[in-house]
Amino acid sequence: MNPLKWGTIEPFYKLAIGEDRMGQLNTIVKMIGLPLVGIFFFLLLWQAAASNINTSLGQFPGPVQTYEQFVSLQDEASAEALKEENFYQRQEDRNAIKLEKNPEAEVKIRDYTGHPTFFDQIGRSLITVMSGFILASIIAVPIGIVIGLSSNAYAAVNPLIQIFKPVSPLAWLPLVTMVVSAVYVTDDPALDKAFLNSMFTVLLCCLWPTIINTAAGVATVTQDLKNVSQVLSLSWWTHVRKIVLPCTIPMMFTGMRISLGIAWMVLIAAEMLAQNPGLGKFVWDEFQNGSSDSLGRIMVAVIVIGIVGFFLDRGMLILQKAVSWDKSTEIR
């Protein structure tokens, strides 16, 4: 491993081995100092603005109240975890006594059904968004490749994409809800209906950027490479696999990153309306709850939503770098 290749660590490493000290300090200030200055001024501004806004639920939360709520959410979560642990412990104790009396006795462990903590909600949201996004990508990439390869198919499909692309998730949700309740009828649902509603809404909203960008990526296959493919008489499938796909990957991932960003935004709205457990439902529940802590908790959710969205995007970037053949180009 060459430490010089780790972007973030490089200046610290060079500083440690004493290479161009002033230059390294400069880089470090730019890399870490300036963002910190930006955040500091934002917090000041937030504090100043918050102290001037009074709502029916009390003063708008500033950074300090928001942090307090974050701590209290953590406390609740650990209290909940303790409760769950005790719940299972009690059952096991009871079962142990039962078995001691009668080794033949049937014992069972009941699942804990406590109410989900804030951190459980983050997990649920991530599961929902990833299912919707992955399903959408599985549908969108082949469509994008097909319409990218055939200008006729593109002409046929493009108007539909342009029309459906700007539709808000809130318009899809009622339709999705009705269709899911009509179509998904089982006595023992493996998947929650609210989950399906949010997932399909996410899917419908994040198909389009991937389709459009994949098709645009297919268009970057040069005539030279098409000629090579023709001279070799490659089959359609080999042509797609060996020539079109590698060429398309950068654009495809650009589309998928936009899609994932949209999916995450849409998800919060969908969860609010579909009452699917997740961050959206958390925000809505706190809003309905209307305690003096609510605004602070919603503020925590806002920041967490932002941070999770940021890491989702970074994750896509890392994935893109891993699958792209051209490691030399910088991907931002």
Partner: peptide, 19 residues
């Protein structure tokens, strides 16, 4: 009447697959 490998082409700008 169609391209085929029995008439191989060496292209001006090599046209190798860069990946």
């Amino acid at each position: 009447n169609e391209p085929g490998p029995e008439r191989a082409v060496v292209f001006q700008n090599h046209s190798l697959l860069p990946w």
